[in-house]
Design a protein around this nucleic acid. Structure first.
Lengths: 188, 188
DNA sequence: CTACGTGATGACAGTGACTGACATCAGGTG
DNA sequence: CACCTGATGTCAGTCACTGTCATCACGTAG
């Protein structure tokens, strides 16, 4: 066996979600999170740049997956259709994680600091998508606008997917949300 | 004369812009800002909820002005045209403040914390505009989409207006940016 | 004129996020 | 066996932010 328990980063994220879920984000200290994960406060900050970041650990993987799917879409695919491919790829990553996502989102909407962090993550995602579209030969401002539209659909679709009564898979909800955006854009 | 120098809030904002401009946002402490304004750190936090907020003091007035202009637009005006009226009203507020705006924006884009705060201010503006449109009888999702479009035009227009070579008035730049959005949306 | 309330401020101690510097120590490598 | 490496612990320190109480010019009631 190794010197330390494995997956310190994951243990910190799990401990943070548990503790913040029990008593709220602001009422949870970094020292407490670290202690539950069997680590010290100083080690927490070696894994996460700040306290908020521990609740956004998956955003990097999400962005990478989304961008890769857009990049890997057929050359013939229109910009909005490569975004659609990205939405489908991202949906696969959330299979079986609806309850987890609900808990996490409840935390975020309840706290202004966390909402700020979420907004900048989505802005980063939008910029990365626009970049991917540009590499596919999409010109500006179409690339940025399509990227923004993709993020808007993701936001709307995600909120619907975690709604209390909702039981459909995320991929289906995303497809439907994208269709609605297309209808609105067409003046429907 | 009164017991204290007047306009403590404004003095704090001015001191903050000066000091952060000289040495950067992170290298400036709240105690230093307060001292330059002739106040104490404790008093700073009686005027601003946190350190970032001192650089966003005008955002409340901007949102109010924008929303009022939208609300006060002729009943016959289409949603996008009431937004256009808001953009014109906001432009009036920036007359003679281009250099100030350049300095402030340079600070914000240079710092991730400040960018986060700016994003949530814009999100708040978008929500307020959507609300104003709904009160004008605009249905969803048209209200939210039009509001988002309005904020997008404001962002693009503002960035153009503070660009180094730019000398036109903000009202003209905003008009032009809105026209471009309309062209893009029309598939042009 | 005096007493009292009010509101903006100062003073001070305390918490918690975050950082820098140095120590530790299992495991791999030559 | 000596040495290096990487993840961790320890500790002191800075700074954002808060709660609490004191101060004191000003206005106002009596």
């Amino acid at each position: 066996m190794s010197r330390w328990e494995p997956n310190a980063r994951g243990r910190l994220a799990e401990a943070a979600l548990e503790l913040c879920g029990e008593r709220g984000y602001e009422q949870t200290t970094v020292a407490e999170i670290a202690k539950r994960a069997g680590l010290t406060e100083r080690t927490f900050f070696r894994h996460y740049a700040d306290k908020r970041e521990v609740l956004f650990g998956g955003s990097g993987a999400l962005q990478e997956l989304f961008v890769n799917a857009v990049t890997g879409a057929p050359e013939s695919a229109a910009p909005i259709d490569s975004i659609a491919a990205g939405l489908q790829a991202v949906s696969a990553m959330f299979v079986g994680r609806r309850e987890y996502s609900r808990q996490r989102q409840a935390l975020i909407v309840a706290n202004a600091e966390l909402r700020e962090r979420e907004l900048i993550k989505l802005a980063s995602l939008s910029a990365a998508l626009a970049d991917a579209l540009r590499r596919r030969g999409v010109a500006e401002p179409a690339a940025s606008l399509t990227a923004e539209a993709g993020v808007a659909v993701f936001k709307v679709g995600f909120e619907r997917w975690i709604a209390p009564a909702e039981e459909r898979e995320m991929s289906q909800v995303m497809r439907e949300s994208l269709d609605e955006l297309k209808a609105v854009a067409a003046g429907g």
